[in-house]
Amino acid sequence: MYITISDASREYYLKDKGKMTALHKVNLEIEEGEFICLLGPSGCGKSTLLNMIAGFDRPTSGSVKIHGEVVTKPSENRITIFQNYGLLPWRNVLRNVELGLEAKNISKKERRQIAEEYIELVGLSAYKHHHPAQLSGGMQQRVALARALAVDPEILLMDEPFGALDAMTRMSMQDEIERLWQEKKKTIIFVTHDIEEAVFLADRIVIMTPSPGRIKSIIKVPLARKRDRTGNDFIKIRDRVFEEFGFKDTAEVDFFI
């Protein structure tokens, strides 16, 4: 298996509250090229899990392995996209996209060429000399995507990347990320609390619940791409996810425990 998470737990020790379990014995296997959505309310540990795969955080027990190797630190082979973009405000779009390439041993000319290619890919060629503050939220996230893809990572980790965008922009960004995923064949692990977003994007939806954070169930989404947000099959799967979270009355009423 490509990514193997076995019995991974993450505990915090807080001065006033004592031990807190952010994540409890999580087991998950992910195949190369899969699009996985981690879905759940806040406090379910989905971001903690993502941070552990990224290498920003480590499990207090259990392990996260990629290609059979334990993840201990961040790597340019798995780039994280943040909700607030993480662009450097003093650099223009071109120089932001070049950032990741600067750590690699490639010539200035080649760097510029690669950056321009990826800016073109996300459709921002007309804005390459703009600074982030001059761009809309959706455009800034495209820059972050171009910057991530420019270093050609195997895995993209996305932490509620469209959470700060309005509903319309979010949908067009979902189309965009699906297109990029199909074109570039990356493995994507995508954290969200938006059920429709998960159903639209994921091969498999990992449903997580809080206190302590753990995986409740995994739902496969066997729909063909590009998915129709208003189609019957789409709505059927969406309803199943609603059920998992208890937002939908089921036919068999079970009041007793």
Binding site: P74, T80, F82, L88, L99, G100, A103
Partner: peptide
């Protein structure tokens, strides 16, 4: 977040100092 991004892309000192 800038430090996290730099860390992710593998930027080391002195680049970290001058670029971030």
């Amino acid at each position: 977040i800038y430090m996290k991004v730099a860390d992710n892309f593998g930027l080391k000192q002195p680049a970290l100092l001058f670029k971030i």
